[in-house]
Simulated assay, not measured.
Amino acid sequence: MAQTIAPPATGTAAPAPLPLKAIAPWALFVGVLMLVLLYFIGAEQGATSVMSGSDVHEWVHDGRHLLGFPCH
């Protein structure tokens, strides 16, 4: 039985990490978006209401309960 020896694997360089300058704008955008969503789910009701009526409250009602925000 013949055995073949595989040639040694050539080392491949690991990809360079992303620079912080490339990630920072996206991280800021996602952070602001999450804060806006948290506001609409948690506080868009009553004295801090930005939109009149209860439409936003009704749209996110189940999410409020899921996240532990009291609403009634």
Rank of each mutant, 00 (worst) to 15 (best):
A2Y: 10
A2G: 13
A2I: 09
Q3V: 03
Q3L: 04
T4K: 07
T4M: 06
I5M: 04
I5W: 00
P7M: 00
P8K: 09
P8Q: 14
A9Q: 15
A9K: 09
A9E: 15
T10V: 12
T10K: 10
G11E: 12
G11V: 03
T12D: 04
T12A: 03
T12Y: 00
A13E: 15
A14I: 05
A14G: 09
A14N: 14
A14V: 13
A14H: 10
A16E: 14
A16G: 06
P17S: 01
P17N: 07
P17K: 04
P17I: 03
L18E: 15
L18T: 15
L20W: 05
A22S: 15
A24N: 04
P25Q: 06
W26R: 14
W26Q: 11
A27R: 10
A27Q: 12
A27K: 08
A27G: 08
L28Y: 09
F29N: 14
V30S: 13
V30I: 09
V32N: 09
L33F: 02
M34C: 10
M34R: 11
V36L: 08
L37Q: 08
L37M: 11
L38W: 06
L38K: 04
L38F: 00
L38A: 09
Y39H: 12
I41A: 10
G42V: 02
Q45G: 13
Q45H: 06
Q45K: 08
G46S: 09
G46C: 05
G46F: 04
G46Y: 01
T48I: 01
T48P: 07
S49G: 09
S49A: 08
V50W: 11
V50C: 06
M51P: 06
M51N: 08
M51Y: 08
S52E: 10
S52P: 12
G53M: 02
G53P: 01
G53N: 04
S54I: 01
S54G: 08
D55M: 04
E58P: 08
E58I: 02
W59K: 14
W59N: 15
W59L: 06
W59P: 14
V60S: 13
H61T: 05
H61R: 05
D62V: 04
G63K: 02
R64N: 12
R64M: 12
L66Q: 12
L66R: 07
L66M: 07
L67Y: 12
L67P: 09
L67C: 11
G68L: 01
G68F: 02
G68D: 08
G68M: 02
F69Q: 01
P70T: 04
C71L: 09
C71Q: 10
